[in-house]
């Protein structure tokens, strides 16, 4: 049984954030790069695999599109937003604990 409390990968977290507004594959790559200030650059093969997994989990959904279109768009679902919010809480805890130990 999958543990929903496990940390998300950086790629998955950024993909979920980028899909608060519907985007196609290349749009996601650009948005993630912009959100991370150029630090995270998703490669297309990695993104394709991640989108497939997120669709299976129901964290994102594909918007209706024409069969020949290369620009299939995706958006985050309610369960995807919950996963992103849980990850945000986990990251806040990491920062809080890191600051209290490292910076005193």
């Amino acid at each position: 049984m999958p543990n929903e409390n496990l940390a998300l990968t950086e790629a998955v977290y950024y993909i979920l954030l980028s899909l608060y507004t519907p985007l196609h594959g290349y749009g996601i790559m650009q948005k993630v790069e912009a959100l991370s200030g150029g630090r995270v650059r998703l490669a297309a093969g990695t993104l394709y695999g991640a989108l497939g997994t997120l669709l299976e989990k129901g964290w994102i959904r594909a918007l209706p599109f024409e069969e020949d279109s290369r620009k299939k768009e995706y958006e985050i679902t309610a369960s995807g937003k919950t996963a992103a919010e849980n990850e945000l809480k986990r990251l806040e805890e990491l920062v809080k604990n890191g600051e209290s130990v490292i910076r005193g």
Binding site: A44, R70, K72
Partner: peptide
């Protein structure tokens, strides 16, 4: 890349379209 499915299959074509859509 060694694809999971043959490029002529539906899944293979979908993947190739996705990569092309990403600028390749």
């Amino acid at each position: 890349e060694l694809l999971e499915k043959h490029p002529s299959s539906t899944e293979g074509r979908q993947y190739i379209r996705f990569i092309e859509g990403a600028g390749a």
